[in-house]
């Protein structure tokens, strides 16, 4: 299983089998749906922001181990962060997931604060070697990104 161990790291399988913050939040929490048209996966991000802070976040929907573990790690990482920190974190994660050469510019301009470490999320780096799975890893992040945009515009 030479190539696959890069993809399916222990921590990824742990988050897949024991997902954090799975479930729903009632209004006034914001609800945002994301779709992966390639595979049909659907993710729902429930985001409760109070005083510019991610007070609570939950994930609904279904997906593969990569999309589910990425969503789980994402919720653990952004809970308690400010909206600004969350937005920076999303950018940092997405630049890690970008295929080389695709977003060098983004790398330069969208750095998260130095004290923000990707931590467990580093395990998802291996996904980049499997380009068809990158969309699985970024689905929940794009949906959270959209939720933040919708909240900012509301």
């Amino acid at each position: 299983m030479s190539g696959l161990e890069d993809l399916y790291r222990e921590v990824i399988l742990d988050h897949y089998k024991n997902p954090r913050n799975k479930g729903e939040l009632s209004p006034p929490a914001h609800r945002c749906e994301g779709f992966n048209p390639l595979c049909g996966d659907e993710v729902v991000v429930y985001l409760h922001v109070v005083d510019d802070k991610v007070e609570d976040i939950k994930i609904g929907g279904q997906g593969c181990s990569i999309s589910q573990s990425s969503a789980s790690m994402m919720t653990a990482a952004v809970k308690g962060k400010t909206v600004e920190e969350t937005a920076a974190f999303i950018k940092q994660f997405k630049s890690m997931m970008a295929v080389h050469g695709d977003s060098l510019e983004a790398d330069e301009t969208l750095q998260a604060p130095q004290d923000m470490k990707l931590g467990d999320l580093e395990a998802l780096k291996g996904v980049v070697k499997f380009p068809v799975r990158i969309k699985c890893a970024t689905l929940s992040w794009n949906t959270l990104d959209q939720a933040l945009t919708e909240l900012a515009n509301s």
Binding site: M1, G3, G63, C64, S65, I66, Q68, F130
Partner: peptide, 11 residues
């Protein structure tokens, strides 16, 4: 999930 099955099958 089907994606994970298919990834393993590809291996």
């Amino acid at each position: 999930h089907a994606h994970d099955i298919s990834q393993m099958l590809d291996e």
